[in-house]
Computed example of a mutant assay.
Amino acid sequence: MEYLAKYITEDIKLSCYEDKFFKSDIMFDQHMLVWFLSGETRIVQAAATYVFGKGDIFLIPRNQLATIINYPKDGQPHKTVVMHLSTERLKDFYANKTIDSGRLKPPGIYSFSNHPLLESCLASLIPYFDMKDIPEDIAAIKITEAISILRTLDRGVDHVLGNFEAPGKINLSDYMEKNFMFNLPMEKFGYLTGRSLTTFKRDFKKAFAMTPQRWLTQKRLQLAHYQLTEKKKRPLDVCYEVGFENLSHFSFAFKKQFGYAPTELLTRRLGN
């Protein structure tokens, strides 16, 4: 995979994946505003799957788990302008603002399609990626402009961008049942459930009577079997969507669990 990136600052970049495929499980530490120039992305979360392509603009809130699968499309690479909305900048922005308590929305990805105001803001960044001498305050100005536009389009976004609290302690069983397909370090799962790593492992064993890794593998294989047999999906797609890092590891674990390889299910379907 060839990955190219140009930066105005560490918060604003032009990102390009030239290869035909890239997949990653991510917990976003910062809010990200993304504008698609070409290619396609599938974002898989516990409650929904999103597909974005050329012209789309969307906001991914921080502290959310997602599987990101990037593709080229129509002969063009996966290319995006990405703006990170850091906690530091957002605290400065919201320091003297009041958040309307009546517009609370559940967390999720905010899609703004190809809205002209946001597109104009993000498109104005393109010339700066090829400049050596960039105006000192341009990043701060553009990020402030983008936040102001987001609030104009959906004031409910204040509850996301203006929330600076760390995740509180939540029900571990419920959270893991909804998010087991995301392949993240145990420390991240601990943080997102409001626990230290030690407390996470202790509470996990109490809840599930086994280690996190063993439980996660079993849950992912069960979901994979369902996707293959009931949803008729391809082994390659299932492998990445249920939390495995590569097809060979998935096939080995699947055969060990069920006694036959995932490709055998595909062969059976094609033979019927």
Rank of each mutant, 00 (worst) to 15 (best):
E2S: 15
E2F: 14
E10G: 07
C16R: 13
E18K: 15
E18I: 10
K23Q: 15
S24Y: 12
F28R: 05
S38C: 05
T41H: 00
T41R: 02
V44L: 04
A48L: 07
G55A: 07
D56P: 04
T67E: 04
I68Y: 12
Y71V: 06
K73C: 05
D74Q: 14
G75C: 07
P77W: 00
M83E: 11
E88K: 08
L90T: 04
A95I: 14
N96G: 13
N96S: 15
K97H: 15
K105A: 03
P106D: 02
S113Y: 13
P116G: 07
E119G: 12
I126G: 05
I126C: 06
P127D: 10
M131N: 05
D133E: 14
A140C: 11
I141P: 03
L150V: 08
L153S: 07
L153E: 09
D154M: 08
G156Y: 00
L172M: 09
S173Q: 12
Y175D: 07
E177A: 13
N179P: 01
L192Q: 02
L192M: 11
T193I: 07
T199V: 14
T199G: 09
F204L: 07
K205S: 08
A209Q: 10
M210I: 08
R214S: 13
T217F: 08
R220F: 01
L221F: 03
K232D: 10
R234N: 09
C239T: 12
F252G: 09
Y260C: 03
A261L: 06
P262C: 00
P262I: 02
E264P: 00
L266K: 03
T267V: 10
N272R: 13
